[in-house]
Write a protein that binds this DNA or RNA. Structure first.
Length: 572
DNA sequence: GCCGTTTTCGGCCCGACTGTTTTCAGTCG
């Protein structure tokens, strides 16, 4: 996938143009291309071959030519020229908090500073404070920024951010001054990784709320402490931003604070065209406030239907909302069962009855026990004998269950040649077969693609588990032509999993949307290895929503009988 | 650099906090 490489180059160009003091809107145009490239469901090379570059929103004449040059020659003259004109380390300086293009340029011009290290040295030596607009505090902030950058943890997994925010929210909620409180930002949008945690509060007395917040025991640094806005660094190095508004502005503030930035820009542009102004306090016609208390009325007042947070990435949701054609996104309460659960028969912790009991408490009507197959020895994969024994055991348990069904399933390895690690005679006895790749991740794209396709052509295979094999921030997806996988999945009536575990979320949001476009249905499973982990379903649902999925796109939104009918279809 | 039921030129979201300043620029989200 060259999309990300190209995105990186456009991002560097934007950085360099910023330092050079170019027109900020030009910089914004480049940034927009970056975001677009990052969220394309298809390889940019294919789009280019079809001559459709300029159909990509945000890509005009200039960018299309640059993309073409990069694809054809592997280089971009404009980019090389820019790099020639600026020292290499200057761009890196922008990654230091509180150091922006203006500061970097000033330090370069006046002091010849070309890198973070040189900047740190100058600040320590008191060389910066003499410059125009620079004082002692500036030097302190630069040193602090460098320190922060060096200790930065990067983005955290959605699951981590969710739990952290819950812990903070729980404690702030106990204050009398706190009325409403909600997570915002990329966490509320359920993005797979989260940088900072954003929390919005309504209160008539913001000051004491802020004082309590910046003095929470795990706060190690206060970056900003205002009456309505504060930022801190926690001991786990995560930045948390809190914003307080009055309750009449809750909806507008939540809208603003949830983002994404690109989405908000578009919203405000549309409002502007209708003679309205949107800010975090409300929607205004002249001085008159016409909306603000509820988020929904903010959207309605500018002529849009309410856009769910998970869609707010400027990926066409605003256009859909204008036409009143937003999808009715799947909800956690639509989920009738967990399609991927491990028991103590393989590498799980809990017994099958324990898992069933927990699932019932979640309001589910069924779960699919999908223990590993024999060749996955590290995970205690089930031999033929034990598999048959487990199937019998499940049958017995089901007889004792009222209004609940345990599905006998298996997470069966797809061997490197595409055959399955289980005899047909056994597969036949399972209610659901989930096939997965756990070995040979490094195969080339042709081999891997035909391997998965071969598995899908097996009539017993209902679902391909974690179809790209990625582990977020740990392992890249294996090389596979997803377009071919989608086409074949549709043809063979095979479903694709959205694995809900926070470090997988595989398929990701973009692939979910593309799968839906191919008419493929998704199976939501947690891949849990103990019953507590069943709650990670919320992250899977969040990702599904980011992928524009509706109830009808997810097979485990079906009642048991309909699900069984659907699964049986392929075997005929 | 992109874009067009106002436009092929002239716009392009909006405000809080900070620090260095006597009114604002830079940075960030």
């Amino acid at each position: 996938m060259r999309n990300l490489e190209l995105a990186e180059i456009f991002d560097r160009i934007a950085d360099m143009l910023e330092i050079k003091g170019e027109n900020p809107f030009k910089v914004r145009a480049y940034r927009k291309v970056v975001l677009t490239l990052e969220s394309l469901p298809e390889d940019i090379e294919r789009i280019y071959e079809r001559g459709r570059l300029k159909n990509i929103p945000g890509v005009g004449e200039g960018s299309a030519k640059k993309i073409e040059e990069l694809l054809k020659t592997g280089k971009l003259a404009y980019y090389e020229e820019l790099k020639e004109s600026l020292p290499e380390g200057l761009v890196e300086m922008l990654s230091v908090p509180d150091v922006g293009p203006k500061t970097a340029q000033l330090l370069y011009k006046k002091l010849g500073i070309e890198s973070i290290d040189e900047m740190e040295k100058a600040a320590k030596g008191g060389k910066i404070k003499g410059l125009e607009g620079m004082g002692e505090k500036t030097e302190e902030n630069i040193l602090r920024g460098v320190e922060l950058l060096r200790r930065r943890t990067g983005r955290m997994l959605l699951g981590t951010a969710y739990q952290m925010s819950q812990s903070i929210i729980e404690r702030l909620t106990t204050m009398d001054e706190v009325e409403l409180i909600s997570p915002a930002g990329s966490l509320r949008r359920m993005k797979e990784t989260v940088g900072d945690i954003d929390i919005l509060i309504t209160s008539k007395k913001p000051k004491p709320v802020m004082d309590i917040f910046v003095n929470l025991p795990e706060v190690t640094q206060v970056l900003a402490h205002g009456d309505t806005k504060s930022s801190v660094i926690m001991e786990n190095r995560v930045q948390v931003d809190v914003r307080v508004v009055e309750s009449g502005s809750f909806g507008a503030a939540l809208q603003y604070f949830t983002g994404s930035k690109q989405h908000n820009i578009k919203i405000r542009e549309i409002a502007g065209k209708n003679g309205l102004k949107v800010n975090e306090y409300g929607v205004f016609r002249g001085k008159k406030k016409i909306a603000g208390k509820e988020e929904e009325e903010v959207y309605l007042s500018i002529g849009l239907s309410h856009i769910p947070p998970e869609l707010r990435e400027d990926r066409g949701e605003v256009e859909s909302a204008l036409k009143g054609k937003l999808p009715e996104l799947v909800e956690l309460s639509d989920i009738k069962g967990d399609m991927h659960v491990h028991s103590s028969w393989s590498d799980g912790v809990d017994t099958i009855p324990e898992l069933a009991e927990s699932a019932k408490k979640l309001g589910y009507g069924y779960i699919a026990i999908c223990d590993h197959s024999a060749s996955l020895k590290v995970a205690g994969g089930l031999s033929r004998e034990r598999r048959l024994k487990q199937i019998a055991e499940i049958k017995k348990l089901n007889k004792k269950m009222a209004d609940f069904r345990i599905l006998a399933g298996g997470e069966i390895d797809i061997r490197t040649d595409g055959t399955l690690d289980c005899e047909e005679e056994v597969l036949k006895k399972l209610d659901i077969v989930v096939a997965a790749i756990h070995t040979g991740f490094k195969q080339d794209i042709e081999t891997m693609t035909s391997r998965i396709i071969k598995a899908m052509r097996n009539k017993f295979v209902n679902v391909i588990a974690h179809p790209t094999g990625r582990l977020i921030q740990t392992r890249d997806p294996y090389q596979v032509d997803m377009q071919k996988v989608f086409t074949e999945a549709k043809r063979t009536n095979t479903f694709l999993e959205l694995n809900s575990f926070p470090d997988r979320l595989d398929l990701n949001d973009i692939n979910c949307r593309e799968a839906k476009a191919h008419g493929i249905k998704i199976a939501l499973g947690t891949d849990c290895h103990n019953r507590m982990q069943m709650e990670v379903m919320r992250y899977g649902v969040g990702t599904a929503r980011r992928g524009w999925l509706e109830k009808k796109d997810v097979i485990n939104c079906l009642e048991l009988d309909d699900l069984l009918k659907l699964l049986a279809k392929k075997r005929k």
